[in-house]
Design a binder for these strands. Structure first.
Lengths: 338, 338
DNA sequence: CTGAAAGCGCTAACAA
DNA sequence: TTGTTAGCGCTTTCAG
């Protein structure tokens, strides 16, 4: 009662096994009569071609690896769901791999596993790949798309939002609403996103001749963001009246800390701006002003780039940077202060 | 430069291809000398056995399908991450499938895809399977574990929390803190979880001779939960002083609505209890009292049950129900009222 | 313990 | 358009 093979169908339909294969192969030539006979037998037996066997010969598994660090930040499940739905339309499915960024040895293992499954492509969501790992994938002919991260290695394709500009926009808006004691709880500055957003922040301040009250690396980690916030408010008279945070996930913690630990009001005492615009940011409890990552466009570009890389052996790497708008909500003043 | 095969390794090591296979096959007999020769050549060529080719002969793809409705409710990304990490230890990886519960035809397609990939097992997270779909999987010899859902069909294995008891506990606690006008925004009552939690609520009320102020199905959907909340507070003098909500995801929306639409205080005016204990519930902005789903134990049981089903052709279905504690937080009074 | 050979389910030449 | 045949990369008898 287990596997039904093309041969079973062929026998039942009284045709050759390759005829069965053809009716299930896109763009193969079969007469309508033949196709009907085969389809009928196939339906009766509930036959479906074995993708894995097919992959052996076509060299395509129709599996895309999604490598991701963790799913706690709502941005990633959201991306995962959207990527998966988009890839399904193209006949691919996502095999999930978790990679902690800390150990090169662990990273090696993840690449081992990727290769084991003969994935057709890799989407690395906010994880970096060392040069040697990228090389291994290239040798195995597995294309890589970096999603929401970029690296010095220009041969790697990536899709990001305009992080520098986003950081700048957020900061200039805070200045425009009258804030003068600005602080930044940055994303991990070892990553492109964290670094560029922080640079945008600094650039805007410099432009207006303002010195930052503090810049602390939150490393995209809530605990560290909480600690950073406490530090910012510990050197009193110079405590911030506005904080730009490296992503929404940390911004929630920053806001909670400002409100429930410091006993301050948002935005009356402190304005807060995040980055990403995850669904949670729009919920009334946080109502967070934030720089939107245009996730749908980013997904589109990622898929397009990846498909290109898969289908075209000599495709050039794609480098896409998409600008996102500043979404104004209740965590900042909506008008100038003075 | 693409695929390195066992034959390449064999030639390089000056041994037979089957020797290579053996050194990479758990429990095959190879001499240490042979193994070393092979491993050396394999390392130099960066060879890894092709799981897909192996699957053809072993009948095992080392792929587990996770079928899930959506990832917006934090409970699911959390479960996905934990399942994935646990399965990795056993040498399996997760291929993700999204299934909207609405159309039987869509569901058929998902099962088609599952079969295409020759998955070794299915974890259906909070999605139901019609009898015919379950049958198709059984015919293909693909075991199924229902995660956080159960069905009338006793031949299906499942792992759930003690939903009836959880609903009862939550409700009795609300009564103990002095609430008398209790309402329930239920989970979708067409699902086992939604129905059983609602029944626990009703049972507790009856036990204390209290009539519910209202019971409205929120269908595990935030928009509907918001609407339900508004309805509950529209028939004034009889508005609730406590709401038990079918899961945390909806409870956040209920709380937001109570606070920001109704202008009421939680817990002073209205107590709220959720279900799940997702990470977000512990964040200060919500600080939600909730019935914990013991997710780690549920995951453990799911994996154990699934592995059993996979490895043992005639394994009996597992039915596991795990009790979870009520986690007291700030959305309810911590002491009796009077 | 090792190598030769068969075959998993499929696609892709190649003839007919 | 169809059937025949030869593998894809691997595991697993079967001899030795």
């Amino acid at each position: 009662m287990s596997k039904v093979t093309s041969l079973d169908v062929a026998r039942k339909a009284g045709v050759s096994q390759s005829a069965v294969s053809r009716t299930f192969t896109e763009g193969a030539s079969v007469s309508p009569v033949m196709a009907n006979k085969v389809l009928k037998a196939a339906n009766e037996l509930d036959y479906r071609p074995n993708i894995l066997a097919r992959s052996l010969i076509t060299g395509r598994s129709r599996i895309i690896a999604l490598v991701v660090g963790y799913l706690e930040n709502q941005f990633y499940p959201d991306a995962l769901e959207k990527l998966s739905r988009a890839l399904k339309e193209k006949g691919y499915h996502i095999l999930v791999f978790f990679a902690s960024n800390d150990s090169e040895k662990e990273a090696q293992k993840v690449v081992d596993e990727l290769i084991d499954y003969q994935v057709d492509g890799i989407i690395a969501a906010s994880v970096s790949l060392s040069h040697s790992l990228a090389d291994r994938c290239k040798k195995q002919n597995i294309p890589i798309m970096l999603f929401n991260r970029r690296q010095a290695n220009r041969s790697l394709s990536y899709v990001t939002s305009a992080n520098f500009k986003g950081g700048q926009k957020a900061t200039e808006y805070l200045i425009a609403t009258g804030c003068r004691r600005l602080a930044h709880v940055s994303g991990w500055v070892e990553t492109s996103t964290g670094k560029e957003r922080a640079e945008g922040f600094k650039y805007a301040l410099k432009k207006f001749g303002i010195n930052p009250v503090g810049i602390i690396d939150g490393m995209y980690n809530q605990k560290m963001a909480i600690k950073a916030t406490k530090t910012l408010f510990s050197k009193m008279p110079n405590s911030p009246d506005a904080i730009f945070v490296g992503n929404d996930h940390m911004a929630f913690s920053v806001m909670d800390t400002v409100r429930y630990e410091m006993g301050l009001k948002v935005p009356e005492d402190v304005s807060i701006v995040g980055y990403d615009d995850v669904p949670l940011s729009a919920w009334p409890a946080y109502n967070l002003t934030t720089v939107r990552q245009p996730i749908n466009k980013m997904i589109q570009a990622t898929i397009r780039g990846l498909m290109n890389l898969i289908e075209n052996d000599y495709a050039k790497p794609t480098h896409v940077k998409i600008e996102g708008e500043l979404v104004l909500r209740g965590s900042t003043e909506n008008r100038l202060r003075q």
